[in-house]
């Protein structure tokens, strides 16, 4: 009995050692080559977190840009795509190194409160008001976004709001405030979800919603653009470095890529093949 127990102990210890050896071997395998050439080793460690809005991710812009950046710089970028509200919160808590967001007011506050540095304009796209093709609220006759929202409220046409504190949601709330309407009747629904889901819901419910251009163009839905081009529907994106980030140098490299000549050119080209026009207009400048 005792002998058995001892055997079991030895066996356990032995298998543990084997396991550890197997683990360390797999991790030491890539480490042996940098010993010969130290440069690639330091590159391998570099990894930064980019907190951004769902729109840049869902439109495919990041999948298009980031591989090019990663190849050039050797810095890996982890993307956390959330609403602008949460993206900014991630920055405040130090859980991200760089923010790429679109809610100018919150961005300015973020910088003013000392959470962010090196804020740049990167690009802009447009918001659309979209709705059913037969346009029951007659929004197409409206001249401004404010007026369009007024018509929707007047006809009590179903309007679906993101209601998730995202950049698009803030934009929408801003237009309601400007139009001096407090939307809170049963025609005003708050989905609390991303743009893609909200558009889908708008289509299903034959309703109206405010959407960013990129997400709208990347979905095939039976919805028409009923209002565009109004000045209040412009959607500027900013890129900001998180001050508390431990990876200042790498973060700055990412910002330089987005605002530099090559990145700007790529941004302008993105989407031209699929949609006939670029989804984003590059306009980099330091704030």
């Amino acid at each position: 009995m005792m002998k058995n127990l001892r055997f079991a102990k030895v066996f356990l210890l032995f298998s543990l050692i084997l396991l550890l050896a197997a683990c360390s071997q797999s991790s030491s395998a890539p480490a042996t080559s940098p010993a010969a050439a130290p440069a690639p080793e330091t590159q391998e460690v570099k990894e930064i977190t980019l907190a951004t809005t769902t729109s840049t991710q869902d439109s495919g812009l990041l999948d298009y840009l980031l591989p090019i950046f990663e190849q050039q710089s050797g810095i890996k970028v982890k993307v956390v795509a959330v609403g602008t509200g949460q993206a900014i919160k991630l920055g405040e808590d130090g859980n991200a190194d760089v923010l790429l967001v679109h809610a100018r007011k919150s961005e300015d506050e973020f910088v003013a409160k000392g959470f962010g540095v090196n804020a740049f304009d990167v690009m802009y796209n447009q918001f659309y008001i979209v709705g059913p093709a037969d346009d029951p609220a007659g929004v197409k006759q409206a001249k401004t976004a404010k007026e369009a929202f007024g018509k929707i409220a007047e006809k009590k046409a179903t309007f679906i709001s993101r209601g998730d504190d995202s950049g698009t949601d803030k934009k929408e709330k801003g237009i309601w405030t400007e139009a001096k309407i407090k939307p809170e009747d049963s025609w005003y629904l708050s989905s609390g979800q991303g743009m893609g889901e909200t558009l889908q819901m708008t289509d299903e419910k034959k309703a109206y919603t405010l959407t960013d251009e990129a997400t709208f163009l990347s979905r095939k839905l039976n919805l028409d653009v009923v209002m565009q081009g109004d000045k209040s529907l412009l959607n500027p994106y900013g890129i900001i470095q998180v001050k508390s980030s431990a990876k200042q140098e790498e973060g700055m490299k990412l910002i330089e890529f987005f605002t530099g000549a090559e990145g700007q050119k790529l941004i302008g080209e993105f989407g031209q093949k699929d949609y006939g026009k670029g989804l984003f207009v590059p306009d980099a400048k330091k704030r």
């Binding site: 959330v82 609403g83 509200g85 949460q86 900014i88 919160k89 991630l90 209601g163 998730d164 504190d165 609390g192 979800q193």
Partner: peptide, 11 residues
Amino acid sequence: TTAIILETRTG
């Protein structure tokens, strides 16, 4: 459950 997701997504 969906409210929890929304609260988390908005920080």
